[in-house]
């Protein structure tokens, strides 16, 4: 114990969190205010104005963008995990060679993603994958690979080696051991890593805005970044569009919070 538990510590933390939640609470109040009500200068709604919600769905094709975001994020997570699991298993178990691979992977993470935008733009066009959801998922999935390896490494290391050795004695190879023994045993951590990669893919803007020039394949962050702006005075509609994008990730985060907190912490504190 660093010091005796103090009430004031709880109080300070609570105040900090209350302050931190203000921007989102503000979005929520904006979503039920009319344009004139917002411009009138009062801080809270004078009257609940629910029309913003249907109006926003009329103004931009929110449903499509939301579906696009989910498709890209799900495909990207599958790709990331398929590549990262054997990679992280190698990193965790191959001693020096594993450390070297981990170092190279993390070095690639240090480069800002803008580095890859132009080359990947040409590569996707060459492959006929620009302006497609699988193309964007491919890029985003690969981009998240270092994060996934970094998180998974911590979990896979915790699988007791004796169990793996027993599997080898039973005649399983390394790939089969990974699939049938290690992955099931480390599944809580793997789920946490997959969720974190899902959030990263779902939230991604730079690649999405660079590669998806057609509305039909844009994701929600792209659509919202184009919808908002100094000329758009429909604060309520911007708030609705934002909330529509935020709510699904918040639901997941709340439902999986223990696992996610444990996952982030395990990745960082090895």
């Amino acid at each position: 114990m660093i010091a005796r538990p103090r009430r004031w510590a709880t109080a300070v933390v609570t105040v900090a969190i209350a302050l931190a939640s203000l921007p989102l609470l503000y979005l929520a109040t904006l979503s039920v205010r009319s344009r004139d009500d917002v411009l009138s200068g009062s801080l809270l709604p004078s009257k609940l104005y629910w029309d913003n919600w249907p109006d926003t769905f009329d103004a931009i094709d929110l449903t499509r963008f939301l579906v696009n975001s989910w498709i890209v994020a799900l495909l990207a997570v599958v790709l990331t995990m398929a590549l990262a699991l054997p990679g992280a298993y190698y990193v965790a178990r191959a001693g020096r060679a594993g450390d070297r691979l981990a170092a190279i992977t993390m070095a690639s993470y240090c480069a800002p993603p803008v580095v890859a935008v132009l080359p990947l733009f040409f590569m996707l066009r060459w492959a006929g994958l620009n302006n497609t959801l699988p193309g964007l998922a491919l890029v985003v999935g690969l981009a998240n690979l270092p994060v996934a390896v970094w998180l998974l490494d911590g979990f896979l290391r915790r699988v007791p080696r004796e169990i793996e050795e027993a599997a080898w004695l039973d005649g399983l190879g390394h790939w089969a051991t990974l699939r049938r023994i290690v992955i099931p045993l480390a599944s809580p951590g793997i789920v946490a890593a997959a969720l974190i990669c899902f959030f990263l893919s779902y939230n991604e803007l730079l690649f999405a805005i660079s590669f998806q020039q057609q509305q039909s394949t844009q994701t929600l962050p792209v659509a919202l970044s184009l919808f908002q702006g100094d000329r758009n005075i429909e604060f309520g509609q911007q708030a609705v569009a934002s909330l529509v994008g935020i709510v699904p990730v918040y639901l997941i985060a709340v439902l999986a919070q223990r696992r996610l907190v444990a996952g982030l912490v395990a990745g960082a504190v090895k």
């Binding site: 803007l205 929600l220 962050p221 994008g245 990730v249």
Partner: peptide
């Protein structure tokens, strides 16, 4: 999502 943070 950072875009939504920005809008807020």
């Amino acid at each position: 999502p950072p875009v939504m943070v920005g809008v807020a």
